[in-house]
Amino acid sequence: MKIDTVLHSDYTVVSIAGEIDMYSSPALRDMLLTLVKKNTATVIVNLKEVRYIDSSGIATFVEALKKMLAYKGKLKMAQVPDRLMEIFNFSKLDKVFEIYGSIEDAANS
């Protein structure tokens, strides 16, 4: 798994590529919690290049979302591939996360 973070004036884009599983999710957790510690107002997670996510990856996003909501921060998902969307739907996380078709849509919402 590869993670790229780009800081913008109003939001931060976290682009992930590869597979998010029990092996890689701790690195993702560390990165997201670093942004949480800085009280980052809006984080947009670009999932376009993610081929797989397991329950530990989902748990990582849920944990980050809960921590961000505590300071009224926003965690948005963008460009979610179909297979991941199926998993989000099954887990009912489509009702929990704000999901957008593009990073621009997520940034402008």
């Binding site: 329950s55 748990a59 944990e63 809960k66």
Partner: peptide, 13 residues
């Protein structure tokens, strides 16, 4: 599935 918290999803999959 309706409960939103980290963990506990593996068995569902």
């Amino acid at each position: 599935l309706d409960e939103v918290r980290p963990g506990g999803l593996g068995i569902h999959f």
